[in-house]
Design a protein around this nucleic acid. Structure first.
Length: 232
DNA sequence: GCGACAG
DNA sequence: ATCTTGTCGC
């Protein structure tokens, strides 16, 4: 798919934060979700103390979760993991995978926060600007914000609030599992983000496409470590 | 100064 | 993020 190069990725941590402040006003979290036929998910894996990143994106049909396409990328990390700057570590590899995609998905699930971020521009939001496709932040744990524990039933949710602002939702994707932290990425509103996550979490806590992307990046990583040919 | 801190 | 078997609870 086509993507727009908005800026360089070789930055210092101070420059990265400045860039986030500059880009944050461009994030759109008011657009209602339109009917979606395909859904993509992106993920990254790596070994601690190793510079290699294994990134992938999978695209599936929204109704059956039939795999339409998937792309894997192996790339050297150029940025450390710094809370608040996860984007600068993972996005370059993820975007490379998206660039190789033949199709353009209707909506994208990202492993991390959307606007539930100190500067309101987490990984999902930032990727949305580059991809110009609705993106959703679907994190497995809290980064910022306060909330009350949602009820134990599937679909139960409670607002995630920071500085008096609702920045996302704490969502129980399946009965009695640990909740997911869902926030709008870009070009989608919170309700739309929640409905996609819920529609995709049909068997386990993690949405089907996200689980597939996670499984794929781990396959890539293990194959690479054993010197085997990388799965395509 | 202390504690928190997506992946 | 990753290293890992069994074990507790529904």
């Amino acid at each position: 798919m086509r993507l727009r190069a908005l800026h360089d990725w070789t930055l210092t941590t101070a420059e990265a934060r400045d860039l986030q402040l500059k880009l944050a006003p461009k994030i759109n979290t008011k657009t209602p979700l339109k009917p979606w036929r395909t859904v993509a998910a992106a993920d990254v894996s790596y070994n601690k103390f190793d510079p290699w990143l294994y990134a992938a994106v999978v695209v599936m049909k929204a109704d059956t979760f039939e795999l339409i396409e998937r792309v894997g990328v192996v790339r050297e990390a150029t940025f450390p993991y710094v809370p608040g700057l996860l984007t600068f570590r993972e996005a370059p590899a993820v975007l490379e995978a998206f660039a190789q995609l033949k199709t353009t998905p209707d909506v994208i699930l990202c492993d991390g926060q959307g606007i539930a971020h100190p500067r309101r521009i987490g990984l999902a939001s930032h990727l949305g600007l580059w991809l110009n496709v609705p993106t959703i932040g679907c994190a497995k744990s809290r980064y910022i914000g306060e909330y009350d524990e949602p009820g134990p039933e599937r679909g139960a949710r409670s607002p995630l609030v920071d500085d008096g602002e609702v920045i996302g939702a704490v969502l129980r994707s399946r009965a009695k599992v640990q909740p997911l932290f869902v926030s709008a990425g870009h070009r989608i509103d919170l309700e739309g983000a929640i409905s996609v996550v819920l529609d995709c979490a049909v068997k386990y806590r993690i949405p089907v496409p996200a689980a597939a992307a996670h499984g794929f990046v781990n396959e890539l990583r293990r194959a690479a470590v054993e010197g085997k040919p990388l799965p395509v």
